[in-house]
């Protein structure tokens, strides 16, 4: 088949092009948040004193961190899904959440005597964190990968990992409402580990299903 013959066939295929990518992403994130909320409220639910905890800095900061991560990962995921997109702004946005986390750890180290550091870091809930963040984020990851697949990511593995970070940010935001461990020392160790599980899973699935 000559190229001009192929062009005739492509032009005759006038079925409406797929859903614009921006809208597909918004739909996928909305669905992912709903699913994560559903799984969270069925499996865990917020902790009993969540209302009062809202007046403590440490509790609120957990959401600042997870939401900052989710927003940055969303922007990067959208940028990665578009061929030829400029990644620089989105990539530098990814620095915000780690920076916030490092800053809060410094404050905590100043505020808390060193004899208590280990206890705060180990916390009481690390196994629950490592189990339930991936559980809450698993189905959202699949939903978000569908949006990524609708796009055209040039690097399948990296795109999958970014999708995993987004699912992790969403899942950790819900999980934070349940977890009794509020110290930044706990958050800085266990949250990134739990989110990394979803990012690795995303990278693996991305390798398999994001090629085009």
């Amino acid at each position: 088949m000559e190229t001009n013959e192929l062009i005739k066939a492509l032009a005759a295929d006038t079925r409406r092009p797929g859903l614009p990518l921006g809208r597909a992403w918004i739909a996928a994130v909305a669905a992912a948040v709903l699913v994560a909320a559903g799984v969270f409220f069925v499996l865990l639910g917020p902790r009993p004193d969540a209302q009062e905890a809202l007046s403590t800095v440490r509790f609120v900061f957990k959401f600042v961190f997870t939401i900052a991560l989710a927003v940055a990962a969303y922007r990067l995921a959208v940028a990665v899904s578009r061929p030829g997109g400029d990644l620089r702004a989105a990539l530098s946005g990814m620095l915000v959440a780690p920076f916030l986390l490092a800053f809060s750890v410094l404050l905590e180290l100043v505020a808390v005597p060193s004899t208590n550091w280990t206890a705060r870091l180990v916390g009481t809930n690390s196994t629950v964190c490592l189990t339930f963040v991936p559980l809450i984020g698993g189905i959202p990851l699949v939903v978000l990968l569908l949006a990524m697949r609708h796009g055209a990511p040039v690097n399948a593995t990296a795109a999958g990992a970014v999708t995993g970070l987004l699912a992790g940010g969403i899942a950790a935001t819900f999980y934070a409402a349940h977890c009794p461990d509020d110290s930044p020392l706990f958050v800085a160790v266990w949250y990134p580990l739990a989110i990394a599980i979803l990012a690795s899973l995303g990278a693996l699935l991305g390798r398999l299903c994001l090629r085009w």
Partner: peptide, 19 residues
């Protein structure tokens, strides 16, 4: 020409990724 054709197909099927 193979690469031209494969790219045209991809552009067609992924044209919703252009904003």
């Amino acid at each position: 020409e193979d690469v031209v054709q494969e790219t045209l197909l991809a552009i067609h099927l992924k044209r919703h990724t252009w904003r």
